[in-house]
Design a protein around this nucleic acid. Structure first.
Lengths: 342, 342
DNA sequence: GTTAAAAATGAAAGCGCTTTCATTGTTTGG
DNA sequence: CCAAACAATGAAAGCGCTTTCATTTTTAAC
């Protein structure tokens, strides 16, 4: 098995050059900046590429040019339409600029996320999109050292240290709590995502607590049930909450799936929603309006975040000096899962 | 701005070697096969890596070794928990072997998919996971030319041309149809995903048709409503179907979200399920049991596919000569959305 | 202590591309 | 018709790593 000139198998740029009877440099120019090569060469090269079935070797390109045209995205979970939709949009916009999106899931684990980010950096991504602010400082250092632009979504940075395209989880949750207080609720409870290492979940909890405090109310720790962000935890937590006495009249959920679970479980327990207890969600995902009762929830600016974060990174990569993006607004979507307490 | 020896910014393997006072080759060995370097060198190198904050340059590695340790996955959509869960599992297993998963969504478009695959190949992925069988022949040629192992999921290949880890969409849909026929239904209809370029959707349709034919029944084209795989299409299609006369007594949905939509719409229309009409789903996704009525659906072996396809690719990458994987079983999950027609 | 075998290392040649710099060919204006 | 300016090209170095091959060091065996 000798390895001679075997353009058959895996043609390289050099094979194309030889076949088109131009220099490798010209082929490279053709690939990167076609309008600097003559029509004549262009035609020949195009033909050769087609004939040889040439596919450029991205790793070699990355190595030589120090640009990978890849953008890394690490989301907490793929097992959720929330980030799925977000990603679709982002990828679409990013693709228009000729970038490839590579995505990985951290499974809501910071350690896992660190590994993923390091791997992406190692693979030479030109930019990174992150969800949430809280992660090891060393990650930010790495990104800064390597001069890799990044943007944080689903959060805002009060300290202004990191570029964020997002909303205030604290204030958003406050909105929900205010609404419920306004309805006359006094006995609150919350079903939350895991708080540790999750600035979004803890921000939401704090938002609720601050509002309650303002009104002379409180949310004791026993009435905050923490767990994974899924329907099952919503169900279990709701069941637990309903066994507490005094029984809370309002269940604030830190994410829609938790609220779904709560509503499902209310059926099983024979608890009337919103008659006996009011339930709220967070994010306004697709199922909300189809639930019985339809879910009152907080709409987060998912599409906006997707697009604006793409825009931000694109500008950044173009070298434009973009300011830090603004904080986005959220909307309280009032449906029928809440009422005044009996 | 001179560029001298600046290990500060972006340390290379050479910097590490210099700092550890060994040759680059030894550092490389340390990175790839630590047990061939002496304890002494190992210690020194480890220390230097830590001090310099060295992150290997994956593109350079790929170029030199012709291995990227990346596995590409192209799914039809990320906007769906179906593939999300699948991906999480796959990624997890693949990571255990030291591979990185890079995922992209084709948005249910074959052209789009071709671009994505080409890009992944260009980026040097070591293997590829694909969903569904139908795509341009040139894609398979590309993969074969470049000698990139791939596996197709959510399908089986009757011709045995491509390695598949999946189930027969045709037979699975047949199961559903048989069940409904057994219940006494005669007037069938189907809400399907887009058929063009989607072997899974068309396989399912054909499966239904074959069973009906066997029983002397038929499914006319007007009673097959084709569209995007979402709740909205399910709703619209169901409404349309209910306006047909004779009104079908069974609505077979090619995917769970379509069935969700149908059930939601039935509430709005005041159509009783399963009294007036029976509805079935496909895939057995999480919402099914929580619907009113709980959805009868067909459980596809998602976790199995995820794990087995990972296993297949891993073996293939290790050079083991694995046989083509087997066809997996599906289960009909009978809940309460079906009954005998009035 | 000596020699053979094994283990650890280093030197150097690429991997496939981009990019600088120098060169050649082509216009344009006087 | 020639110089100046510009457009298009080619030669060659190098991106950061792996890997072969040769060399040195260590260990084992007698």
């Amino acid at each position: 098995m000798k390895k001679l000139t075997t353009p058959s198998n895996n043609p390289t740029l050099e094979d194309v050059a030889r076949h088109a009877d131009v220099s490798p440099a010209t082929v490279s120019r053709f690939m990167n900046n076609p309008n600097v090569v003559s029509e004549r060469s262009k035609k020949k090269i195009e033909a050769s590429i087609k004939v040889l079935n040439y596919v450029p070797h991205a790793a070699a390109r990355t190595l030589a040019s120090k640009k990978s045209r890849m953008i890394g995205v690490i989301v907490p979970s793929l097992d959720d339409t929330l980030f799925g939709r977000f990603l679709e949009l982002f990828q679409q916009r990013i693709a228009e600029e000729g970038y490839t999106t590579v995505v990985a899931s951290s499974n809501y684990s910071t350690e896992n996320e660190s590994v993923q980010i390091t791997q992406m950096v190692s693979h030479g991504v030109d930019a990174v999109l992150l969800v949430g602010l809280s992660r090891d400082e060393s990650i930010y250092r790495l990104l800064n050292n390597k001069n890799i632009p990044y943007v944080v979504t689903w959060a805002t940075d009060a300290l202004g240290e990191h570029p964020c395209v997002g909303f205030s989880n604290h204030d958003a949750a406050s909105r929900v709590a205010e609404y419920l207080v306004g309805l006359g609720h006094r006995e609150f409870s919350m079903i939350s995502g895991t708080l540790k290492g999750n600035d979004r979940a803890s921000g939401r909890l704090q938002g609720v607590r601050d509002v309650l405090a303002k009104h002379g109310l409180s949310l004791p720790d026993e009435l905050v049930i923490e767990g994974p962000l899924g329907v099952e935890h919503g169900q279990k937590a709701f069941r637990l909450l309903m066994s507490r006495s005094p029984r809370p009249t309002a269940v604030i959920c830190g994410a829609d799936p938790l609220a779904y679970g709560a509503v499902f479980e209310s059926k099983i327990l024979g608890v009337d929603v919103p008659g006996d207890v009011s339930i709220t969600g967070f994010d306004d995902t697709w199922l909300g309006p189809h639930l019985t009762p339809p879910l009152t929830t907080l709409r987060t600016p998912q599409n906006q975040m997707s697009l604006l974060s793409a825009e931000y990174l694109i500008s950044k990569l173009k070298g434009e000096d973009v300011g830090v993006p603004l904080t986005l607004d959220v909307d309280l979507i009032v449906r029928e899962s809440c009422s005044s307490p009996a």
